[in-house]
Each structure stands twice: as structure tokens, then as C-alpha cells.
Design a protein around this nucleic acid. Structure first.
Length: 799
DNA sequence: CACTTCTGTCATGTC
DNA sequence: AAGACATGACAGAAG
């Protein structure tokens, strides 16, 4: 429980940070100030009640199936962490600006090539920035909005993207406009596409956006500036300065890069974009989604579409090529969705019912998405639809969103009965959560504008319901997964700062010795799906770089070490190491859940830990952040072996000593000229460290075994109870049968008559059943004799 | 202060 | 044979 608590708290903090990242850019805060206190509260900091709730939810979600804390299903963690890893990378800029450019253009080519069937249009390839149109809201809106943050979420900026020309979209929006593309355009598309391919982006990546374009093509004409402004607000980050149409040439691809884009690479604002990309990733890129997109397109065209059009902005970021394939992201989302599916089933049903009742729902899509589209909210609907397509389970939230925003957009829609449901729905979709966050800006009117949402009494605070119920539950999962993922980004930074020569590598990867089966499976899964390139050749298990130690090493020369005290500070956090190590994200994060638990190394960049851990750990964290406590403190925090290693001036970290494969370990020893005492100590450290892990694994297994046995005992008891019940039932049946037989016997016997027509006295005669089924009436005396001499057959009357 | 629990460690055995 | 791992037992720390 404790460790779950810790994770919960940490996750909560991480989520808060994430939200704040998004929120800052989206400017959700501004809206929240007056309208959505709960969300604000969550963003600014979770209340204890929230935490508590989340904790329980988390617990239920992860361990609810009765597995003890130490045997939590790693698959859940894995899936969540994979997803969260992407989210965490938001504050870590990894996407080259060039990738962004590539993205824009690609969609069109694809459309041109394949899409005759698709309604979506294509590409306006004049660089004139038509991409905006695709993402409709962005262009105009972006400029208008004054930007608040330093963020440079420039995707939206038409200048920056310079992508598809609006006109093109309009043309295409109506339908297949491939013909309208000039050869020049097509050539341009191909060129850009090739560049994208060079960047690792495939055309399929852009499918969604192209679809979006289709829907938006029509919309764009109708998109008014207001919508644009909203979108701007929503994108918020986007402080595009208008004049910045300046384009830079990407050295790598030779592509023209708008200045804003180029700046993206170095700005944290990318996080928002990343986030959006994640959202997009949730949308199906496959053909399956296309029908939805086309389907939804008409809906988008309504006058109310101002807001919806903005939503399309969401799609823009998604196509950005990444180190991770978009499909992976999608898969990740799906994983999370799958996890949440069960929880949402109930909500889903409700939502569907609501839709059925909804008069506005004119679209007859069989899937939920169809219902979503009916709300008339274009983008949000689309998004939800896509999500629902892939994840059949995303219902409630998606519906909620549209309905939510409809009130603002379309009064008639806003009054739908579904709205009240928002508050009660438990929808906990991550997607929806993000969608809400992102969409907030879209649909919520600017601060200065009148806000229908708030004014409308009918609307319960959407965010309250969504966040409190949905988000909290889901996010608890996220938090859990996030806690370590978050540090990953920072870890890389730290990695840069710290000299890796110390022997502390942030890359510690999978341990060759993954103890439990679950761990093994997890690790394999992780390796297969893991996007992190940090898989360590060293094969370090859970031992991760101790940043603190690393710092110390840089100063002292390297003796790293694990710090068992950390475990005492946050004991439960790593109680079940199998839960966490081998997780792909963790590879780079290097959490040491098992052995050394170098406080700093394990959670180098996880501020959230500070909250859940003791003051000691907080101090340690400060130490990480370049505030180095006195050496005594470090010593105090260090384990015996660490102190010994320091005392012996062992030139490398205990982590390496313990985790390196034999070959590398020996190589390491050979590299340094060590005394016999040092070698002895190193071998002892290695032995003890491995044994420590082994002991932990052993205990875990033991615990698992006990639990399984308990389960077995329960099952056996159940079986025994069932069998006893069946036995009783059988006895009862037998009794009844005997009763019947007796009755029948009496009846038959009473009807028997001798030659003279007199009844046989029951005291002298009785009926006997022979083996062949015949019934004989026999004198009792004979019966007695027969009982003595069973061989003798009775031979009286046959009936 | 006794007890329990957790964790690290050692010794030993197995693979 | 060496190394890794598993496990029982013990001791110490902490609650």
C-alpha cells in the first residue's frame, strides 16, 4: 500500500506538471479561474482528497484483481508507461523542426495518390501555408491571439508551416480535387514526401491529417476569425508573432522551415505539440478511420463549426514524425485504452443510450464515433470517433466532450439531456482527458468573450465532472506510470551534465537476470515495443544511474553506490521491483527498484518523488540539483558497501560492479589497476548486490506462491462446499426415490392376491426384485434363507 | 520492551 | 569450473 501511495503521489505530481505544461500553453488557467475551479485545482495541485481518491482508484485498477502489491500485472504498467513515456517527453524537445515541416505536406500526396475514394482533398501544395487550412483554425486564429507563453507552438502558424494553401483545402474539401492539383504541386508534394521519408516519416503517418483536411476543407470557408481566435487560445502556446514568416532552410533536408518551427526544436513549447501529437496518435491512421472522417466531414460544415474547426488543430501536430513511429503511439494509446476499457464500459453504455435518445443525433454510424459525430461538434467528435473506432471502449468521454462544447457552439445541442450526465459519468479516458484539456481552449470562449458554458446553468462544470471523475481515475494510472517516465527527459539532460565516465550510465537496461517470470515477460515485451534506445548493453537490472552518486562521482571520482537508506525513505516504492524494472521507459530512467536504490539515480528527475518521500529524500533531490550536501550526509545515505567502496577508492560505481555482465565486469577490472583488497571488495559488492536482488526475487516468489496457495485453498474450499452441496442434494434425491419406491411397493403389495383372492399378509410375504427386473412375492422366511444363501433363487409368483 | 515485518547478508545448493 | 541464481537462516533496523 505504501508504495502505491508513493506512486500515486508522484504520479499526481507528474500529472500536475504535465497539465501545467499543457495548461500554460493552452491557457486553460485563464478559463479555469472563473469557470473551472476544479481543473485549476488539479493543475495547481491536487488536494488530499483527490490524492486519496486517486490512490484508491489506482489501487483498484492495478491491483484490483486481487494480486498482491508485489505481483501487480506488469503489462498494465508497461502499457501505461509506454504511453506516458511519450507524454513525458513533452517537456523534452526531441522532435526536429524539420520533421514538422515534412508532416504538413505529406498528407496531400497521399490523398492524391490513393485517395480517390477519400473525400479528402488534398494538398495544396503551394507552400503558401495552406496547411493552415487543413488545420483550419490555426492560421488566422493564431495571429490574433496574443500569446501568453513563451511557447512557440508554431505549428498552427500559417507562416511557419507554410504548408497547404487554404484555397486548396477549400477545393479539396468538396471532394476529390486531385485533378485540380497542378503537376507542380504534385512534384512539390513528392519532394516533400521524400524528405519526410528521409526523416523517417511515412505517408501513412499523415493519413489522419489528410482526413481531417477533408472534413475541414469545407469548413475552412466557413471558419470565421472567432473560431480562429479560439483555436489560438486553445493552442495557446502559440504566441506566434505574425511577422514571422521568415523561413529557414533545414540543413538536413533542405526544407524551408519557418522560423517558428525552427525555434520549436529548442523550446519547451513543443511539449504541447507533442501532446497534441499523442492525441492524434490515438486517432486511427488506418483506413478504418477514414470512413469516419468522411462521415463526419459533413457535420463539420455546419455554421456552428467555428469551434469544431479549431479542434482540427489537434490533428496537425500528430503527423509530426518522431523517433517513435506514430503507430507505436497509437498502439500505446490503445494499450491504455484497453486498460481502461473495462472501467468505461459502464459509461459507454450510458453514453450510447444517451445518444439514442438524442434527437440531434441524425447520423447513423454504427459505432460510437458515429454518435459522436452527431453532436455536430466537428473535431472533437472526430477525435472521439477515431478513438472509439480503435478503442471500442472510449465512449463516455468522447460523447461528453462534444455535448459539452455543443452548448457553447450550438444552443440546441447544449440543451441535450446528455449534458447533465457529464457530471455523473465516470468516463476516465485518457484520451478524453487530454481532449478536454486541449479542447478547452477551442470551445471555451476567450476570457473576454461571454462564456456560454459558465453562464449556462444546465451545464455542470464539465471539467469538474471530467476531471474529478474521469481524469482522476485514469490519471491515477497515468501518474503511476508517469512517475518514472517523466524523469526520462530530464535524465537525458542530466546525462549531458554529468560525465558518464564516472561509470554511471543512465542507460542501465535490462538485467540479464530478470528473476520472475512476470518480469521476464515484461522485459521481453518491453524490448519489443520499447522505443527507447537506451537499452543497456550492460544489462543492468534495476540499477540505474544514481544521479546523486554520479554527482558525487564527478566530484569524488566515481564511487557510486546504492543507497539503501533510500529504500527506507520510500520503502514501498520499490517493494515489487518486478513491477518496474524491465519496463521500457524505465530503461532510460534507470529506476532502481530492487537493489541499490540510489536515491538520486533512481529518480533523478522526479520531483514528484519529493512529495511522497521523506525529507531526507528531498534533501537528496536538492543534492541532485547541484546543491551538494556535505559528504557526511552522502556517507550516511550510502550503504555499507558504498562507504567501503569510497573508502577503498573504487573507481567505478557499485551499480556497475553489480550489474555489469561478467565479461564487462572483468574487463572493467582489468582496465583499472586495483589492489587485492579493492578487488576483493568489488567482488563482495557484486556478490552481495546480486544476492540482494536474488533475495528480493525469492521473497517475491515466495509471496506469490503463498498467495497462489491461498487462492488454491480458497478454490478447494469452494469446491468442497460445492461438492457437499451436491452430495446433500443427491442424498435428498435418494431419499425421495426411496420414499417413492416404498410407496409403490405398498401399493403393489396391497393389490396382490393369492389363489383364493385374499391379500398377502405383509408380515409373511414381501416383494423381491430380481436381477432381471422381475418382481417376486416371497415368504419372509424364504427371504431370510435367501439372505443366508444368496445362491438360492426365489421362485414364487411373478407379478 | 517484546513482537512483527522488512531487508540485507551469508552459506549452501542447483543449474 | 565458474558464474548466476535460488533459498533457508540469521541479524539488524524500524514500526
Amino acid at each position: 500500500m505504501l508504495y502505491l501511495k508513493k506512486y500515486f503521489t508522484e504520479g499526481l505530481i507528474q500529472f500536475t506538471i504535465l497539465l501545467s505544461l499543457i495548461g500554460v500553453r493552452v491557457d486553460v488557467d485563464t478559463y479555469l479561474n472563473s469557470q473551472l475551479p476544479p481543473l485549476r485545482e488539479i493543475i495547481l495541485g491536487p488536494s488530499s482528497a483527490y490524492t486519496q481518491t486517486q490512490f484508491h482508484n489506482l489501487r483498484n485498477t492495478l491491483d484490483g484483481y486481487g494480486i498482491h502489491p508485489k505481483s501487480v500485472d506488469l503489462d498494465h504498467f508497461f502499457a501505461i508507461r509506454r504511453l506516458l513515456n511519450q507524454v513525458h517527453s513533452l517537456d523534452h524537445l526531441r522532435v526536429p523542426s524539420t520533421e514538422l515541416n515534412a508532416w504538413l505536406v505529406h498528407r496531400d500526396p497521399e490523398t492524391v495518390v490513393s485517395a480517390a475514394s477519400q473525400s479528402s482533398p488534398s494538398i495544396a501544395l503551394d507552400n503558401g501555408g495552406s496547411l493552415e487550412d487543413v488545420n483550419s483554425p490555426e492560421p488566422s486564429a493564431m495571429r490574433g491571439a496574443g500569446s501568453t507563453s513563451e511557447s512557440t507552438y508554431s505549428l498552427s502558424g500559417e507562416d511557419s508551416l507554410g504548408a497547404v494553401a487554404p484555397e486548396a483545402n477549400q477545393e479539396q474539401g468538396n471532394g476529390d480535387s486531385v485533378d485540380e492539383l497542378s503537376k507542380e504541386d504534385i512534384d512539390l508534394i513528392d519532394i516533400l514526401w521524400r524528405q519526410d521519408i528521409d526523416l523517417g516519416a511515412g505517408r501513412e503517418v499523415f493519413n489522419y491529417s489528410s482526413r481531417q483536411k477533408d472534413g475541414e476543407g469545407d469548413k475552412q470557408n466557413e471558419v470565421n476569425e472567432e473560431a480562429g481566435v479560439r483555436e489560438e487560445d486553445w493552442r495557446n502556446g502559440i504566441n506566434l508573432q505574425e511577422g514571422q514568416g521568415i523561413t529557414l532552410v533545414d540543413g538536413e533536408t533542405g526544407e524551408s522551415i519557418p522560423e517558428e518551427l525552427s525555434r520549436l526544436g529548442t523550446q519547451t513549447s513543443m511539449s504541447l505539440q507533442e501532446c497534441l501529437r499523442l492525441l492524434e496518435a490515438t486517432f486511427p491512421f488506418g483506413e478504418e478511420s477514414e470512413f469516419q472522417a468522411t462521415d463526419a466531414a459533413p457535420q463539420l460544415r455546419g455554421p456552428e463549426e467555428n469551434a469544431p474547426s479549431t479542434s482540427q488543430g489537434l490533428s496537425l501536430p500528430a503527423p509530426l514524425p518522431q523517433s517513435d513511429a506514430p503507430l507505436d503511439l497509437e498502439q500505446q494509446w490503445q494499450d491504455i485504452m484497453a486498460i481502461m476499457e473495462l472501467q468505461e464500459m459502464d459509461v459507454n453504455n450510458t453514453a450510447e443510450n444517451t445518444n439514442l435518445n438524442n434527437p440531434n443525433n441524425t447520423h447513423t454510424n454504427t459505432n460510437e464515433s458515429g454518435t459522436m459525430a452527431s453532436f455536430g461538434v466537428s473535431q472533437s467528435s472526430l477525435i472521439n470517433q477515431d478513438v472509439s473506432l480503435h478503442q471500442a471502449s472510449l465512449p463516455s468521454c468522447s460523447q461528453d466532450l462534444p455535448s459539452l462544447f455543443n452548448s457553447d457552439l450550438d444552443p440546441s445541442v447544449g440543451q441535450r439531456p446528455t449534458l447533465p450526465r457529464l457530471s455523473s459519468s465516470n468516463s476516465t479516458n485518457v484520451n478524453s482527458t487530454f481532449g478536454v484539456t486541449n479542447l478547452t481552449g477551442l470551445f471555451l470562449p476567450p476570457l473576454n468573450s461571454t462564456n456560454n458554458l459558465t453562464s449556462s446553468p444546465v451545464l455542470p462544470d464539465p471539467f469538474v465532472s471530467l476531471l474529478e471523475e474521469s481524469m482522476i481515475d485514469e490519471i491515477s494510472l497515468l501518474d503511476l506510470a508517469m512517475e518514472e517516465g517523466f524523469s526520462q527527459a530530464q535524465a537525458s539532460q542530466l546525462e549531458d551534465e554529468l560525465d558518464s565516465d564516472s561509470g554511471l550510465s543512465l542507460d542501465s537496461g535490462h538485467s540479464p537476470a530478470s528473476p520472475s517470470n512476470s518480469e521476464t515477460s515484461c522485459s521481453s515485451a518491453a524490448s519489443s515495443s520499447s522505443t527507447s534506445a537506451t537499452f543497456s548493453e550492460e544489462g543492468a537490472v534495476g540499477y540505474s544511474t544514481d544521479s546523486e552518486v554520479a554527482t558525487a562521482e564527478t566530484e569524488e571520482g566515481a564511487v557510486g553506490g546504492y543507497q539503501p537508506e533510500y529504500s527506507k525513505l520510500c520503502r514501498m516504492s520499490y517493494q515489487d521491483p518486478s513491477h518496474f524494472h524491465n519496463l521500457p521507459q524505465l530503461d532510460s530512467i534507470n529506476h532502481n527498484h530492487t537493489y541499490n536504490l540510489p536515491a538520486a539515480s533512481s529518480y533523478p528527475e522526479q520531483p514528484q518523488l519529493l512529495g511522497s518521500c521523506s525529507k531526507k529524500y528531498r534533501d537528496k533531490h536538492l543534492q541532485q540539483t547541484k546543491v551538494h550536501p556535505p559528504r557526511e550526509f552522502i556517507d550516511k545515505q550510502s550503504s555499507r558497501d558504498e562507504r567501503r567502496a569510497r573508502a577503498m577508492k573504487i573507481p567505478f560505481s557499485n551499480e556497475k560492479i553489480v550489474n555489469l555482465p561478467v565479461e564487462e565486469f572483468n574487463e572493467l577490472l582489468s582496465k583499472h589497476h586495483l589492489s587485492e583488497a579493492q578487488l576483493s571488495l568489488i567482488r563482495d559488492i557484486r556478490r552481495r548486490g546480486k544476492n540482494k536482488m536474488a533475495a528480493q526475487n525469492c521473497r517475491k516468489r515466495k509471496l506469490d506462491t503463498i498467495i497462489k496457495l491461498e487462492q488454491g485453498v480458497q478454490d478447494l474450499r469452494r469446491d468442497k462446499s460445492r461438492l457437499l452441496k451436491e452430495k446433500m442434494e443427491c442424498l435428498r434425491c435418494i431419499r425421495q426415490m426411496k420414499q417413492k419406491v416404498q410407496t409403490l411397493y405398498q401399493e403393489v403389495f396391497s393389490q396382490l392376491r393369492d389363489e383364493e383372492g385374499r391379500p398377502y399378509p405383509a408380515s409373511e410375504y414381501c416383494l423381491q426384485y430380481s436381477a432381471d427386473g422381475s418382481v417376486l412375492i416371497t415368504p419372509r422366511s424364504m427371504t431370510l434363507e435367501q439372505s443366508r444363501k444368496p445362491d438360492k433363487k426365489p421362485k414364487d409368483k411373478k407379478k
